[in-house]
Amino acid sequence: MLGLVLVTHAPLGDSIAQCVQHVMGSVPDGFEVVDVPASEDIDTTVKRIQDAARAVQAGAGVVFLTDLFGATPSNAAVRAGAESLNLPTVLVSGCNLPMVLRALGFRDLPLNEVAERLVMGGRNGIVSTGATAPQRQTFNPAKNDDSARDHHQQ
């Protein structure tokens, strides 16, 4: 099973973890949050991310979810994955609650399949309904067996 490490600007990660607990009833094993305060040294952040990755990994690899690509949490996660972890990792940036929930649901898939599904889940979690009811949204061109088809059901 894949381990998940959520790396965000503080306090976003802890807030998302609280939402996960609200939705799922508890925060599942194999999920860690590293909230990065503005004052923290990047070397300290990298070490904390590596420690979290080691804590959640179960042999299949680790998915790093970050809030903003190119920002300190994302850069530190890239560095953490590249430096001495010796396990497969992937980083998906732009996380939101639908993406995190999807990540928790797809941890049994191979690492190379997960990133694409998480990006799709994050995008499909963003829905503009305007003044119409969800049943009147525009046609979804996804194939019937594609999880993007039921974008309102994360």
Rank of each mutant, 00 (worst) to 15 (best):
S39P: 10
P98E: 02
G59V: 15
Q18F: 05
K143S: 15
R117S: 09
L104E: 01
G94A: 05
M1S: 05
D145R: 04
T72C: 09
E83N: 08
V92K: 04
A10F: 08
A10L: 09
G61S: 10
A133C: 06
C95L: 10
L97T: 11
P28S: 02
F64P: 03
G125M: 12
E40K: 05
T66M: 04
Q50M: 01
Q50L: 00
R48S: 11
L101D: 04
E40Y: 01
A53V: 07
D146E: 14
S84I: 08
V78A: 12
P141W: 01
T72E: 07
P73N: 01
T45G: 10
D35P: 00
V23M: 13
V114K: 02
P28K: 04
P88R: 15
L85S: 03
V56E: 05
D150T: 13
Q50G: 06
S128R: 07
K47I: 00
D14A: 14
T89A: 02
A148T: 07
S74L: 04
G30W: 06
A71R: 02
P37T: 13
Q137E: 03
F31K: 06
T129P: 00
D150Q: 13
R107F: 13
S147F: 12
Q18I: 01
Q154P: 11
Q57S: 13
M99V: 08
G30K: 03
P88F: 12
S39L: 14
R79H: 12
G121D: 09
L109I: 03
E116W: 10
L65H: 04
D67V: 11
L12H: 04
D41C: 09
T8Y: 00
G94R: 07
L85H: 08
V5R: 06
L97K: 11
D150W: 10
M1F: 07
T89G: 01
Q153K: 15
D150G: 12
V33M: 09
G30L: 04
H9V: 11
I49N: 06
S147I: 11
A53Y: 09
E40G: 00
G94S: 05
N86T: 07
M99Y: 13
G105I: 00
I42H: 08
S74V: 06
G70Y: 04
S147Y: 11
D41S: 10
Q21M: 08
Q137R: 15
T8E: 00
E113S: 08
V119A: 11
I16G: 02
D145K: 11
S74R: 00
G61F: 06
A103W: 10
V78T: 11
